[in-house]
Design a protein around this nucleic acid. Structure first.
Length: 577
RNA sequence: CGGGGCGUAGCGCAGUUUGGUCAGCGCGCCGGCUUUGGGAGCCGGAGGUCGGAGGUUCGAAUCCUCUCGCCCCGACCA
């Protein structure tokens, strides 16, 4: 590609509304442009990178036995009624009507569509297993699109679905996808981590997320510094230490705590460590009050709470709830003598003794309280959020660490979550009808592109990993008006392309500084500089974008070196478009 | 949806408090000359219904009302 004719509108200044590196650099380097909140055009360079990511995905999917399909974005309401998600998906689904009033949704995901396709075209155990995937745009009307490609309303996604005869088969499909995902993210130049993930109430019981560590990541993960354990914070377990005070023999005793409502205030006032207190949170669960108990130093984890309660319709008491239930005194609620509320407690309190909690009387707390003896608990569950430094739930020695990450993929063991309601059945060897056992596997393709930039940039621009770069070589003749330089650049351009390299030739009549600045911004991994050195010695300068390392080479040596570096499989078929 | 902020040329911004030489600056763009290893200099030029609608006024980018869009924080989130 000749840069003079390429559509690469770079910007010297950052657009004002770009906060994170990937967003800012992708705009500045002319890879994309914003159309509306959370909606972007991909320009030629951005498209080239997406194409390379998709090529990697296609190769790995093919190797893992999956077949590519392409399903409509426009999905009829009736299908979503069948799975119950037309109403459940809520405002996040973009909806529209055709001229005759028929309703459609723009696909946020394709479980219904794929299940419909498979159920009506497979009937026998001989048709299974089946693993289908597609790559295309998805639509989610996010409450708050942000960070450019990291949370958009229209984005490119690879979504895949496996259909097996039974659970063992599904586990096999799941494992194959897990491994393929690891290869994909590695080839994309990412440091990544697979973590155990929450499935919500929808997706069966086992799920993994693939996380790319990044400061600006919206997901929080916990991992063990000693073993392989890693989990989304919503799911992360930890080994509990039971808080037991020195006097479990004493009976509860009231203490005057004037105006002390928070754990911190009471702890300071009474000189008791937060972990020796009972945090009592009032939740409104399906319109009824529930008391949620935790050790005083723990935050409640609402994803875990949803699982424990078996519903997602709950909220922490709001001001109007405190008014509606005047029996409960904000700041002084406690489980002892609490009336009219279910009580669920974190497992960490199960064997605890001699703690401090609210007395259900204004300005008073209770000392020497022991669960079980002084109050009843309806259920003990895992409700707390893991903290940095907690003991690992899997191994003896490990401590948990926390990290922020960008979720670039997630895989689910769906089992029969969709095949039952959508009646995707097959006949087994004995002619009996059985539901297909499914898995679903997603990769945020456009988000992955942004995640790669978050991990691969410096203050001057992006630094593309070789497999994803929009080109393999960037040729910079520093003075286009000098014929010798021009001729050498043209020769290199021609010969590099003959060797199957994708090349960007900066044939613009620009000054050296501008060419360097744009080249740094765009981030093609290898740069051939043709300038002063060539005029003096006939050598070219090969520079690595990542570390700036330079070597002086003849044209032939330079070509040889790059041809060897080039990944043989992924190149050469990208130039269309 | 709650809180905060912002819409003025392709991009970045000043001007709005106090209505009247306020249609401006830098970058970019076009033309010319000089330059040419890290975003050059000089000269000349094009480009804006000041987000939109309505109102107040002799007069509105500026004041008022409504509206649309965008960003940040929060709530929420396969």
């Amino acid at each position: 590609m000749r840069q003079s004719r390429a559509f690469i509108p770079t910007l010297k200044e950052s657009p004002a509304d770009a906060e994170v590196a990937s967003h800012r650099l992708l705009l500045r380097a002319g890879f994309m442009r914003k159309v509306a909140s959370g909606i972007y055009d991909f320009l030629p360079l951005g498209t080239a990178v997406l194409r390379r990511i998709m090529d990697i995905i296609r190769e790995e999917m093919k190797a893992a036995g999956a077949q590519e399909v392409l399903l409509p974005i426009l999905q009829p309401r009736e299908l979503w009624e069948e799975s119950g998600r037309w109403s459940r998906y809520g405002e996040e689904m973009m909806r529209l009507k055709d001229r005759s009033g028929r309703e459609f949704g723009l696909g946020p995901t394709h479980e219904e569509m794929i299940t419909d396709l498979v159920r009506s075209n497979t009937g026998s155990y001989r048709d299974l297993p089946l693993n289908l995937y597609q790559i295309g745009p998805k639509y989610r009307d996010e409450l708050r699109p942000r960070f450019g490609l990291l949370r958009g309303r229209e984005f490119i996604m690879k979504d895949g679905y496996s259909f097996d005869r039974d659970e063992e088969g599904m586990l096999e499909s799941y494992r194959a996808m897990y491994e393929a995902y690891g290869r994909i993210f590695t080839r994309c130049g990412c440091a990544w981590r697979a973590v155990e993930a929450d499935t919500g109430l929808i997706g069966g019981d086992v799920s993994h997320e693939f996380m790319v560590p990044a400061e600006i990541g919206e997901a929080q993960i916990a991992y063990c510094d000693s073993c392989e354990y890693a989990a989304n914070l919503e799911k992360a377990g930890y080994r509990r230490e039971t808080p037991r005070g020195p006097r479990p023999d004493l009976r509860p005793q009231e203490a005057h705590t004037p105006g002390k409502r928070t754990i911190e205030e009471v702890s300071g006032f009474l000189g008791v460590e937060p972990r020796m207190m009972i945090k009592c949170l009032m939740y409104l669960v399906e319109d009824r009050p529930v008391a949620v108990l935790l050790p005083g130093d723990r935050e409640a984890n609402e994803a875990k709470l949803a699982r424990a309660l078996g519903t997602e319709t709950f909220r922490l008491f709001a001001p109007e709830d405190w008014e509606r239930f005047p029996l409960y005194l904000q700041g002084f609620v406690g489980p002892v003598g609490l009336e009219g509320a279910r009580v669920i407690a974190d497992q960490g309190l199960q064997e605890a003794a001699d703690l401090v909690c609210g007395a259900n009387r204004v300005d008073h707390h209770l000392l020497h309280v022991s669960p079980g003896r002084d109050f009843q608990v309806d259920a003990y569950c895992d409700l707390g959020t893991a903290l940095e430094g907690d003991a690992c739930p899997r191994c003896e020695a490990g401590r948990l660490r926390r990290e922020a990450g960008i979720e670039v993929g997630q895989i689910f063991q769906l089992k029969t979550r969709y095949s039952l309601p959508l009646r995707a059945f097959y006949r087994d060897e004995r002619g009996e009808s059985r539901p297909m056992v499914m898995g679903t596997y997603g990769i945020g393709v456009s988000r992955l592109m942004a995640a790669v930039v978050e991990q691969n940039h410096d203050d001057r621009g992006m630094i593309w990993p070789e497999e994803l770069a929009p080109a393999d070589l960037h040729i910079l003749p520093l003075d286009w008006s000098r014929e010798e330089l021009r001729e050498e650049a043209e020769a290199l351009y021609r010969e590099a392309r003959e060797r199957g390299l994708e090349v960007l030739l900066d044939d613009r009549d620009e000054r050296a500084g501008s060419k360097f600045a744009d080249a740094d911004l765009i981030g093609i991994p290898w740069r051939a500089v043709i300038g002063r050195e060539f005029l003096k010695t006939g050598r070219l300068e090969l520079q690595a974008r990542r570390d700036g390392e330079k070597s002086l080479l003849s044209r032939g040596e330079l070509l040889e070196r790059l041809t060897v570096k080039r990944h043989p499989a992924a190149r050469g078929k990208i130039s269309a478009g």
